[in-house]
Design a binder for these strands. Structure first.
Length: 254
DNA sequence: ATGACCCTCGAAGAGGGA
């Protein structure tokens, strides 16, 4: 089984790239972030024609998530159970016996901002919900754009980014909190190239200079840890014309 | 260099992203 996550930064713009990518990478399921579409504008026909069932949850202009799967998703949930949220950031469903949770974590803007306060509250809500999901399901995969670089090795310039958004101790503590629930960072189960990032700024020729952050993650529950055969970041779509600033992350389960 | 890019909304330039 192969699962993927990709922040597409506008599905309206990136739909052709998504369809191309799925044709080349026929994963069993993929979660998308930043679709930036209201539900009435979601391209269900094109995705269906590509052979995927789809669940979607959007809003105007910002955020928006989707879960595409070859097998239909069961018990679909939108947003964090027990945390009231105006923003469309989470979609979950059970696909072929695996609880798949796709999430677009808040950016947080700056550590002294209101948006950071919102991010912390959202992370508290997520942790409480994930504790319940891990009790309810053996096989759980939490993946998406976490907007957290867990360690200095996930940052191209950790000195410049020290204490900045995505790298604050508070955000990193929340990431650790998810690991303390039992989740495992699938990417770090394997030897990986140095300077592996999942996001590169559009500015400053950042991709060409490989200046980025690893902020898109796939966490698996304890029961799945031994099933993980591979986890890779696919940089290829970042080389497209008009790319998303994020690359897909893919996990292969036995 | 308190910048640089891209997307949305909407018809210019601001807000958000990270």
């Amino acid at each position: 089984m192969r699962l993927a996550t990709w922040n597409v930064n506008s599905l309206a713009v990136r739909l052709p790239q998504l369809l191309d990518w799925l044709a080349a990478n026929p994963v069993d399921a993929i979660v998308l972030q930043e679709t930036k579409l209201t539900d009435d504008k979601f391209p269900t026909l094109e995705i269906g024609a590509a052979g995927y069932q789809v669940q979607w949850f959007g809003q105007k202009t910002y955020n928006g998530v989707a879960l595409l799967s070859k097998q239909p998703a069961q018990d679909v949930v939108k947003n964090i159970v027990g945390y009231a949220d105006e923003q469309a950031r989470v979609i979950a469903g059970t696909v072929a016996g695996v609880r798949v949770i796709g999430a677009y974590f808040p950016n947080g803007q700056a550590p002294d901002s209101e948006k950071f306060v919102y991010k912390m509250g959202w992370l508290d809500g997520l942790r409480a919900w994930m504790a319940e999901e891990l009790k309810a399901h053996e096989k759980v995969v939490l993946m998406g754009d976490f907007n957290i670089a867990p360690e200095d090795r996930d940052v191209y310039d950790p000195v410049a980014w020290a204490g900045q958004i995505h790298c604050t101790p508070q955000e990193r503590a929340h990431f650790q909190g998810l690991l303390e629930l039992g989740f495992v960072d699938a990417f770090r189960l394997f030897e990986q190239p140095e300077k592996s990032w999942s996001w590169w700024d559009y500015r400053n020729l950042a991709f060409r200079k490989n200046q980025g952050l690893r902020i898109d993650h796939i966490l698996v529950s304890p029961a799945l840890k031994g099933e993980v055969e591979a986890c890779v970041i696919d940089k290829l779509p970042r080389k497209n014309e008009r790319p998303s600033d994020h690359a897909p992350v893919v996990v292969t389960l036995r």
